[in-house]
Design a protein around this nucleic acid. Structure first.
Lengths: 115, 115
DNA sequence: GAAGCATATACCCATATGGGCATGTGTTGG
DNA sequence: CCAACACATGCCCATATGGGTATATGCTTC
């Protein structure tokens, strides 16, 4: 089945570095495609494709402005990602890591001794 | 160039639903592969493959326990993701969304009138 | 050291990219 | 109405999956 379509969910959409870069740029405000492509140093078609993916997962919205099409950020979709990762916050706390490493170490030694 | 390897970074590793499920399960503590495979309703080879990816990006560590291999969570790698998405927090605040929607609406009307 | 259990790998496939390039489409201006 | 400009799409390709199945590896235990 290969990988699920990137357009299916936000996690997949932001797995692409260039797309994350686009989102960061859009934090500063709306931008036309060409400008984004230029700032990212990629050909315009490439930028359009990434923008399409972002649009399909709802992270970006577009608005026609004459000959241009301005893309704007709609970061609401990032909230679930933030919350999901936040569910692991207690596991990366420094104190916890140290304690955990210590426990792991003990287990390892114990197992090696028993072996 | 196709997509970058999933083993290259955490964003890519957690783009896979099954892998996210594995991480969630591991929050409860270490688990052997078979058990994970069973709980996820997937064949053992599949679980092993996902675990490998998670291990390569450092989200999981393994420890030999006799005949078994216990996988444990190392969520530190999720922190960057949490922080990156956190950088957009102001953009999904409800009040902001309303204001933004309002502004967008104004612009839209203005453009339509000018057209 | 043979048999068995727990995992990891090797393959084989269908599919979804992401990139580069050419081209279609819609809008603006003269 | 035509040329120019800003984008979106269509194609073609090399590659990286994720899944399923068969098989190699590692330890244990008898």
């Amino acid at each position: 089945m290969a990988r699920a379509a990137t357009t299916s969910d936000v996690f997949n959409a932001i797995a692409e570095p260039q797309r994350r870069a686009i989102l960061v740029l859009l934090r500063a405000g709306e931008r036309p495609v060409t400008e984004l492509a230029q700032e990212l140093g990629m050909p315009q078609p490439g930028a359009s494709k990434h923008l399409r993916v972002l649009r399909e997962v709802g992270l970006v919205r577009d608005r026609k402005a004459g000959r241009q099409r301005l893309y704007g950020l709609d970061a609401r979709g990032l909230r679930p990602v933030h919350e999901w990762t936040g569910g692991f916050e207690q596991f990366w706390t420094e104190s916890f890591d140290r304690l955990d490493a210590y426990v792991q170490d003990l287990k390892q030694r114990r197992d090696e001794e028993q072996r």
